[in-house]
Write a protein that binds this DNA or RNA. Structure first.
Lengths: 215, 215
DNA sequence: GTCTATATCCTGATAGAC
DNA sequence: GTCTATCAGGATATAGAC
């Protein structure tokens, strides 16, 4: 019988879980089958090989993930509002899917073409058109209007993403070093948002006295 | 014959390369043997099992890596100097060993106890004693002296590390999205240092007018 | 479509000569 | 210490009954 709990979908869900947790090499078809409530033979009936199952599971997961994430950089209102919503959005989504990010950095670095292709396709052009130019324009206008210092928008983007991502990416390490923190806790997440915003907003907004450090 | 090119050391070097590249599950004893210029049997002669080889190779590599990295947070001079040297050090070392970081975030997240133990041991206490308290004190004094705003030192540390690490950790993704940049290039690295420092220093230094955003 | 049983291949590990 | 040859276990993939 088919429907919302169709076997094919249940397999993809299970496959995603296992691949994200163990990686492509560490994943076992047996475990995927078990989590989907079926046996190995049926895996190969639906998806020819491990390779093919990997490709399909990954494509589905990453497409969803990035489509959502990319919305975070759509500009809204003035610079301060935009910055705040960017950070809020990014952190909220990342804190809910830390495995995806960890998996991505690993698998792409290991030379996996699947993840690379999926990403390139999503980021370069989606329904609303390429999104980086939009982000870039927002900052260029802010700089031209004198609202913020003349920072490099691209590097600022790297800095923002890096700050937002780090604690979730390195959560297992952090909890080993600082037993008192828990990056999945709501209180910590809100504090994190506030600290990032304060640092960045103070760091980029134009000063009244005009004592700029840049040379 | 033994000496600088001793077989045991050559094996550890090769093992490190392969483990960092492919992960524990993806690594093949055959490949390690080949890169060390020997055969599989000799691997098991020197190191009983894959597990044991993994443990020793990892311990050696991570110990070296962290011992060097940890020196980055030793305070030196005033706040501005300290901040600049921290960023310089961190980025220089990370740009030279991006695989180590990528490997770490992955392997620890996959529940590997080896990496976790090694890290905990190194960061908590080494020759010079625990280093986080030292870092924390440096900022507390800076805040008390009115040199910088009352930021949370721990979150600032997370932000700094995140900003420094990101471009190297995500290098394969970034080059896929922005073909024009190359995170391993010297010019890019120096620009990155400067952008991070400017952002953070403007973000934390006490303002003359005292128009603080914090509530 | 779903199962059990089996084939095939690969990998970590060992035996034993030199 | 280093090699060749081989074993034993486990993984993907397939055959064939229902």
């Amino acid at each position: 019988m088919n429907g919302p709990g169709a076997t094919g979908e249940r397999i993809l869900d299970a496959a995603c879980e296992v691949f994200l947790e163990k990686g492509k090499a560490g994943a076992r078809m047996q475990e995927i089958a078990a989590r989907a409530g079926i046996n190995k033979a049926l895996l190969h009936y639906y998806f020819r090989s491990k390779e093919e199952l990997y490709r399909q599971a990954l494509t589905r997961e990453l497409t969803t993930f990035f489509r959502e994430l990319v919305e975070s950089v759509r500009p809204a209102g003035d610079m301060e509002t935009f910055l705040r919503s960017f950070i809020d959005n990014y952190i909220d989504r990342l804190s809910r899917n830390p495995q995806v990010v960890r998996f991505l950095t690993w698998e792409i670095g290991s030379g996996g073409p699947v993840a690379r292709n999926v990403i390139a396709g999503i980021v370069q052009g989606n329904e609303g058109g390429p999104i980086y130019p939009v982000y870039r324009e927002t900052f260029s206008r802010g700089i031209a209007a004198g609202a913020i210092r003349p920072v490099d928008p691209q590097h600022l983007l790297f800095s923002l993403v890096g700050m937002c991502i780090f604690v979730f990416l390195a959560a297992p390490i952090l909890t080993a070093v600082f037993p008192e923190i828990d990056p999945s806790e709501k209180e910590f997440i809100e504090k994190r948002k506030k600290e990032i915003f304060d640092l960045v907003w103070n760091g980029i907004k134009a000063e009244k006295g005009g004592n700029d450090v840049r040379d």
